[in-house]
Structures are given as structure tokens and as C-alpha cells.
């Protein structure tokens, strides 16, 4: 198996890069979308709340694959065409946005009420309270969930292979049709994903420990 991987290391690495592009794109895009959605979700304006809730529930209760097919195969009916890569990033962004919105919301609501009261008691205006008091604590609270979401996104990016995106899984599948060394290829592929997840988790953990140590 190892010599197989080494022989095709270039292709695997190219696929890995695409996987990363998809995952990072979906996390960044999804974060923007998620922040906006979370704000709407907690807003006093009824229609905004309904809109954001509908979006969150619709995405979280339907398969990502169907969302992807809708973007890639359904939108062309309206003249909106995406490349496989573009469609994958877009679909995963929309998918991530819903999950991240809930993570952000939970983070915001996890900040103890006493913090808001202390800020109010010294007369801190709303914006300063949000930026200086609430957000830092909320971000610290959701840090593990964010890491997990990132890892899940990396794993989920594999569905891009089903519409032809040449990310890591697709590279392996192509290789399979060329060499038919299925067991080795799939084993190597699994281990690659496991390795990527482990590296992300470990790096995140160390960063998290450093952050924790500052405050405790």
C-alpha cells in the first residue's frame, strides 16, 4: 500500500489541496452566513427570525447530498451553472451555515447573564458589551464545537466526488479504475482522512490549551 501511495503522491496531494479548499471555503463562507443567521435568529424582528429558523431547520433536516445535487443539477434550470468544485463549495457553505448558526447562537447564549449585568452596571453601551464582554467569552466556549465542525466538513467534502470534483476521494476512485488495487487504495484513503482529522484535532487542542491557560 505504501509504495502505491508514494507512486501517486502527486495526485493524492492535488486531491488533498482541493479537499482543503472546499473545507476552508465552506467554513469561512459558512461562518459569515452563520453569524448573519444567528443574529437574525436572536433578533426582535419576527420575519427575520422566521427566515433564519426556516433556513436552519430546512438544511439540518435534509441530506447534504440532496442539497449538493440541487445546487449542481437543479439550478442550471434557471441558468445558474457551477463547476463541480464551485457547486461543492457553495452547497457545503450553505450546509455549514445552518450548523454554525446554531453553534454561534449557543455560544452567545452560554455567556452568563451576570456578565451582561456587570457590564450594564458600569454603564457599558450595547456595542462595547458585545465586543468586549460577550464575544470573547462566546468564542472561547464554542471553540471545540468549531473544531469539530471543521473536521466534519473535511470528511463531508468527499461527497464532491459524486459530482466529479477531483478532491481526495475522487482521486482514489480514479486510481482504483486504473489499478484495481481497491483494498489498498481505500485503506490508504481512510488513513489519510484519519490523519488529517487527527492533525486538525491536535493542533486545535494545543491552541485551546494555550488559550485556557491564560484564563485559568
Amino acid at each position: 500500500m505504501i509504495e502505491l501511495v508514494i507512486a501517486h503522491i502527486g495526485e493524492f496531494f492535488a486531491g488533498f489541496k482541493i479537499t482543503l479548499v472546499i473545507a476552508l471555503g465552506a467554513m469561512l463562507g459558512g461562518s459569515l452566513l452563520g453569524v448573519l443567521t444567528a443574529i437574525f435568529r436572536l433578533s426582535h424582528v419576527g420575519p427575520l427570525r422566521v427566515l433564519s429558523l426556516s433556513y436552519i431547520e430546512l438544511i439540518r433536516n435534509t441530506p447534504g447530498l440532496v442539497q449538493l445535487l440541487l445546487v449542481y443539477l437543479g439550478l442550471p434550470e434557471f441558468g445558474i451553472r457551477f463547476s463541480p468544485l464551485g457547486a461543492t463549495i457553495l452547497a457545503l457553505t450553505i450546509n455549514n451555515g445552518a450548523y454554525l448558526a446554531e453553534i454561534f447562537r449557543a455560544g452567545l447564549q452560554s455567556v452568563p447573564k451576570g456578565q451582561l449585568e456587570a457590564a450594564a452596571a458600569i454603564g457599558l453601551p450595547r456595542t462595547a458589551t458585545l465586543i468586549d464582554v460577550v464575544l470573547p467569552q462566546a468564542l472561547l466556549a464554542i471553540y471545540p464545537a468549531l473544531t469539530n465542525q471543521f473536521i466534519q466538513t473535511v470528511l463531508f467534502s468527499s461527497i464532491g466526488a459524486l459530482i466529479g470534483t477531483v478532491e481526495l476521494t475522487q482521486v482514489a476512485l480514479i486510481l482504483n479504475t486504473q489499478t484495481y488495487r481497491t483494498i489498498e487504495i481505500l485503506a490508504a484513503l481512510s488513513l489519510m482522512y484519519v490523519g488529517i482529522s487527527a492533525v486538525i484535532a491536535s493542533a486545535s487542542h494545543r491552541l485551546g490549551v494555550r488559550l485556557e491557560r491564560r484564563y485559568h
Binding site: I151, L155, S158, Y193, S197, A198
Partner: peptide, 23 residues
């Protein structure tokens, strides 16, 4: 357990399906 949780479900399904026929 870690391997299964750390790799995509798609890959696992393919592994079972394609792998079994190979075996």
C-alpha cells in the same frame, strides 16, 4: 473506532461494497 469516526461515511460504504466483491 477512531478510524471509523475519522473517515468519511462515503469511503466506508465504498470500502464495504467494493472491498467485499474484491474479497
Amino acid at each position: 473506532v477512531d478510524v471509523v469516526r475519522g473517515s468519511p461515511l462515503l469511503v466506508q460504504l465504498l470500502a464495504v461494497y467494493l472491498g467485499s466483491s474484491v474479497l
